[in-house]
Design a binder for these strands. Structure first.
Lengths: 148, 148
DNA sequence: CCGATATATTTCCGAACGCAAGCATTTAGC
DNA sequence: GCTAAATGCTTGCGTTCGGAAATATATCGG
């Protein structure tokens, strides 16, 4: 007898692998971004001053701080991200979203939206998609600021 | 106005990152397995002869064939997996689950089940967990043999 | 003010992955 | 039966990631 919670977790992991496979390629070739790059920039998009500290980003993305450092480096060189210091705390190195970055993530979002619709194209009603989004939202609710 | 399907996809990706972070550490330190190692062995567990070809495993895990080759190598040396040839097709190199492997993945599954329950510990009813599992099952239904 | 602790960031190192290329074998067309 | 295409698997290379250590700054207790 298999536990329902275990079943849900396994299926979520499998579903993610499937989605990543479907999205990664086009996102990279068209916009030059990885899936995680996009999530990072989307977090910045909705941040108060279009900026977040690196540890804050790490928590939101569930990755290590070193990963954030390495992820932002090339995006900064491409002019999509910037770096800003805090007046009161010299340790902080905010990651900022530049105008270029806003345009790029906006375009990437359109690709993601289109491919998201494809995922549910057949055999899914609007109510079912919303039910899934709601349930998943409860999982991520424990995390710092929910996305979208 | 954000699309519901896009919202669901983003939340699924975020939720997976959260779960991987919560599960990975204990799974590795206690059983010496990664999350993907466990999924691989669980696929073998439910396979007809406790064996699957490498490309089949790759499709089920949504990873490249080369990844399967590299994943199985250390597990084979540890005696958890074996290698079996096909009588009719000399290209095939089945990955088999040994007795040792069955015991290890059985123990790892218990850890996964326990931690899965923790995820839904508070604020989740049995019906809601089942609803989530069902909806996620429809996402992975398009894939070769569903797990669990 | 001073030392101890905590926090933010970066760098180094090893592990894991995808892709392209290569090899072996099987299948299909003729 | 023979060549060409397809399939299964592995290897080399570049990329990405987490953890530990190092550095810099901030905070707390006295």
């Amino acid at each position: 007898m298999t536990q329902t919670s275990f079943l849900a977790v396994i299926r979520l992991l499998s579903a993610q692998a499937l989605l990543e496979q479907k999205f990664s390629q086009e996102l990279g070739s068209v916009h030059g971004l990885s899936l995680n790059d996009s999530l990072l920039m989307m977090h910045l998009e909705q941040a108060p001053l279009l900026r977040l500290s690196r540890v804050d980003l790490a928590k939101r993305l569930c990755v290590s701080p070193s990963t954030v450092t390495r992820m932002t480096l090339p995006l900064e060189k491409l002019g999509m991200l910037g770096r800003e210091a805090d007046v009161r705390d010299a340790r902080l190195a905010y990651v900022t979203l530049t105008d270029t970055g806003r345009k790029v993530i906006g375009a990437a979002r359109q690709t993601l939206e289109r491919k998201s619709k494809e995922v549910f194209k057949d055999r899914w009603s609007a109510d079912e998609i919303e039910a899934l989004a709601d349930l998943l939202g409860r999982l991520t609710a424990s995390q710092p600021n929910d996305l979208v």
